[in-house]
Simulated scan of single mutants.
Amino acid sequence: MEIKTFAKGSCNCGGVTFLVTVPIDSVFICHCSICRKSTGSGGIAVTVVPTNSLVIETGQDLIQAWEKPNHDWLTNFCKKCGSPVPGKNDEENSYIPVSLLDSGYENLEVKHHLFVDSKASWEEIGKTGTQHKGAFGV
């Protein structure tokens, strides 16, 4: 049986590839200091999907996880090229850095900005998306 694919993605070196089996349209941008340091930018833009809708096709052995001590925060990255790669968001969902998408990004729209109270002073938040002082719903 063929899996219906709505999006495909890969890391910078192409070692980690994945596909998404549900439609995606929402982007969450986290502006917290941890995400800024993790990406070297103003934060990270991700979409969130049910974990069973994310299929790592290649490179599972290249995925390295790092958990910030004393925080409920975990990031995954490719051991070969350093790109952030999809990872566990919570018990039911996974996050996908939208910059990794090679297809399926056409309908993406920024819906939420998270931790805007800790954004970098030099960063300007765009006009789209609801701004939250902390995590989603806060």
Score class of each variant (00 low, 15 high):
residue 99 S to Y: 09
residue 43 G to V: 06
residue 93 N to R: 10
residue 21 T to P: 05
residue 31 H to T: 04
residue 33 S to H: 06
residue 73 W to C: 10
residue 13 C to P: 04
residue 80 K to H: 12
residue 132 H to V: 04
residue 39 T to L: 01
residue 118 S to K: 07
residue 12 N to Q: 13
residue 101 L to T: 08
residue 104 G to H: 05
residue 45 A to W: 00
residue 96 I to C: 02
residue 29 I to Q: 01
residue 66 W to Y: 15
residue 3 I to T: 15
residue 127 K to C: 09
residue 136 F to Y: 11
residue 4 K to S: 14
residue 28 F to R: 05
residue 44 I to Y: 01
residue 18 F to R: 02
residue 34 I to H: 05
residue 116 V to M: 05
residue 45 A to K: 00
residue 120 A to T: 08
residue 72 D to C: 08
residue 103 S to G: 10
residue 43 G to P: 04
residue 17 T to A: 02
residue 95 Y to N: 02
residue 52 N to H: 13
residue 41 S to T: 13
residue 127 K to Y: 12
residue 40 G to H: 01
residue 34 I to L: 13
residue 131 Q to K: 12
residue 12 N to C: 10
residue 122 W to C: 05
residue 98 V to I: 15
residue 27 V to Q: 02
residue 77 F to D: 04
residue 25 D to Y: 07
residue 90 D to H: 03
residue 109 E to A: 11
residue 48 V to A: 02
residue 96 I to S: 00
residue 106 E to S: 14
residue 10 S to M: 10
residue 114 L to H: 02
residue 79 K to G: 14
residue 31 H to Y: 09
residue 59 G to E: 08
residue 50 P to G: 08
residue 50 P to F: 06
residue 3 I to Q: 13
residue 73 W to A: 12
residue 60 Q to Y: 10
residue 91 E to G: 11
residue 34 I to P: 00
residue 85 V to E: 03
residue 137 G to P: 03
residue 112 H to A: 15
residue 35 C to N: 00
residue 10 S to H: 10
residue 11 C to M: 02
residue 95 Y to F: 14
residue 1 M to H: 12
residue 105 Y to N: 15
residue 30 C to A: 00
residue 45 A to P: 00
residue 84 P to F: 08
residue 128 T to D: 13
residue 125 I to K: 03
residue 1 M to K: 11
residue 15 G to T: 01
residue 39 T to N: 00
residue 120 A to N: 11
residue 60 Q to E: 15
residue 25 D to M: 11
residue 33 S to G: 06
residue 94 S to R: 02
residue 116 V to R: 01
residue 118 S to L: 08
residue 7 A to E: 07
residue 107 N to M: 07
residue 69 P to Q: 09
residue 77 F to E: 01
residue 119 K to N: 05
residue 125 I to D: 07
residue 135 A to D: 14
residue 70 N to C: 13
residue 120 A to E: 12
residue 110 V to H: 00
residue 78 C to V: 07
residue 78 C to W: 01
residue 71 H to W: 11
residue 18 F to E: 03
residue 27 V to A: 01
residue 24 I to M: 04
residue 111 K to C: 11
residue 60 Q to V: 13
residue 118 S to D: 15
residue 64 Q to R: 12
residue 5 T to I: 15
residue 2 E to T: 12
residue 62 L to V: 06
residue 24 I to D: 03
residue 91 E to R: 08
residue 57 E to N: 09
residue 82 G to A: 10
residue 9 G to L: 02
residue 16 V to M: 04
residue 6 F to L: 09
residue 49 V to N: 03
residue 52 N to I: 12
residue 78 C to L: 06
residue 134 G to R: 06
residue 118 S to A: 11
residue 57 E to T: 12
residue 40 G to R: 01
residue 138 V to S: 11
residue 72 D to S: 11
residue 31 H to E: 06
residue 22 V to D: 09
residue 29 I to F: 06
residue 121 S to R: 08
residue 12 N to T: 10
residue 50 P to W: 07
residue 88 K to C: 14
residue 92 E to S: 15
residue 137 G to R: 02
residue 22 V to F: 05
residue 127 K to F: 15
residue 11 C to F: 01
residue 36 R to I: 07
residue 110 V to P: 03
residue 54 L to D: 03
residue 94 S to A: 14
residue 104 G to Q: 06
residue 60 Q to A: 14
residue 79 K to S: 15
residue 68 K to I: 14
residue 114 L to W: 02
residue 129 G to Q: 05
residue 96 I to A: 01
residue 46 V to S: 04
residue 101 L to Q: 06
residue 60 Q to T: 14
residue 7 A to T: 08
residue 106 E to P: 06
residue 119 K to W: 05
residue 90 D to M: 07
